[in-house]
Simulated assay, not measured.
Amino acid sequence: MTSRVTFISPAMNAALRRARFDDGWTPLDDIGTAQARSAAATLRPAARVLTSPGLRCRETAEALGLHGPVVPELAGPDMGGWRGRTLDEVSAAEPESVGRWLTDPDRAPHGGESVREFCDRIARWLADARDLDGRTLAVVEPEVVRAAVVHALGMPVAAFWRLDVAPLTATALSGRSGRWNLRLGRPLAAPDSDD
């Protein structure tokens, strides 16, 4: 049995534009909503659709015409006391904490999840997803895509920061026999018959 999981990153919103640690309640902006609606026809049907709990993911799924349950395990990382603040604000107020967070995957100076804890959570979800037959579409935060790629390729957790996930792109994993193969960030605006 081959399981296929296509991760869709959310469309643009104010939190992404300002590099703000999203609090989960920032809606899509008008441009992001329009782009997601125009990309709706590029997605092939799937056996199941899943969504991260964040508002931008739920609104992206809706604009894409996708309907499925919210999965708490697919939430973005818990940013603790940094939630709702921009990276610039936190860097100015807590430069040493930000430096430790960016260089040590086991540190969580903000009081939320460390990068390692977050990647481990997504790895556990992927282990369960390997047993799903057919194709799954999951509209998730960009950090979830990063963590999934780190796990799928057996990369060191520190590589998490070396991966960029553009808004409204599809990253596909196909798995069987205990391993995953990766297909990176296809823009949803360009239909592709291989996904």
Rank of each mutant, 00 (worst) to 15 (best):
T86R: 02
P187S: 06
E96N: 14
W82S: 00
G65Y: 08
D29G: 05
R121Q: 14
R20I: 03
L188Y: 08
R37A: 06
L28W: 02
I31C: 07
P45M: 13
W101H: 03
A159T: 14
A75G: 04
D23R: 00
V140G: 04
A39Q: 04
Q35H: 09
R37Q: 11
P109H: 04
V157D: 11
A170K: 06
P72Y: 03
V49T: 07
D192M: 07
T42K: 02
A108P: 01
V90E: 00
L182R: 15
W82H: 01
L163N: 09
E94F: 03
E89R: 00
A19H: 10
R48M: 12
D192F: 08
T33I: 09
V115C: 14
L168S: 12
S174V: 13
P191T: 06
D29P: 05
D29S: 06
H151F: 12
G65H: 10
A152Y: 10
R44A: 09
A39K: 05
A14I: 02
L64M: 10
G65N: 11
D78G: 02
W25Y: 06
R44I: 06
A41Y: 13
P187K: 06
G32S: 05
V115M: 12
G185A: 14
A36E: 04
G111K: 02
F21C: 00
D128E: 13
V139Q: 01
L87H: 11
D164S: 15
S177H: 10
S91A: 12
F160E: 07
L137H: 09
Q35K: 11
R130E: 14
T6K: 07
T2M: 14
V144F: 04
G80T: 03
D120F: 09
D23M: 00
A46I: 10
M155L: 15
R176A: 14
S9M: 05
D22W: 00
T169G: 07
G134W: 14
G112R: 03
A148W: 06
L64C: 07
V157L: 08
A39W: 04
A15K: 01
R146F: 07
D128F: 09
D106Y: 01
L168V: 08
D106P: 01
A19L: 09
W180N: 10
S52W: 00
R183W: 09
F7A: 05
L66K: 06
R124V: 13
F21H: 00
G65T: 04
D128Y: 08
L182T: 15
A147N: 10
D195Y: 10
G81L: 01
D30W: 06
L153Q: 13
H110M: 01
L168T: 05
P156H: 11
V49R: 02
P77D: 01
P156M: 13
